[in-house]
């Protein structure tokens, strides 16, 4: 089975990768979209004062 990796996907904020598997006839057998990143804002914002959170989460995406 032929495999095509699109790594990284570009021209967007963030990280992504696409794996495409082709069958013997050359058609797409299956396709997987992967996000190879995590920073964990969901956790590390815990315990931060509420008024500081907008300043922190503005760095989730600066685009």
């Amino acid at each position: 089975m032929q495999r095509i990796s699109i790594d990284p996907i570009t021209r967007l904020e963030g990280h992504g990768k696409i794996e495409i598997f082709l069958n013997d006839a050359g058609g797409v057998e299956n396709c997987y979209f992967q996000i190879p990143e995590l920073r964990g804002f969901e956790k590390f914002c815990e315990g931060r004062p509420a008024d500081q959170v907008p300043q922190i989460v503005s760095r989730i995406c600066g685009v």
């Binding site: 904020e13 989730i60 600066g62 685009v63």
Partner: peptide, 12 residues
């Protein structure tokens, strides 16, 4: 390149 980043450096 950006590793664990937000893209703000690119936009700047």
């Amino acid at each position: 390149y950006w590793a664990a980043a937000c893209g703000g450096c690119d936009v700047a």
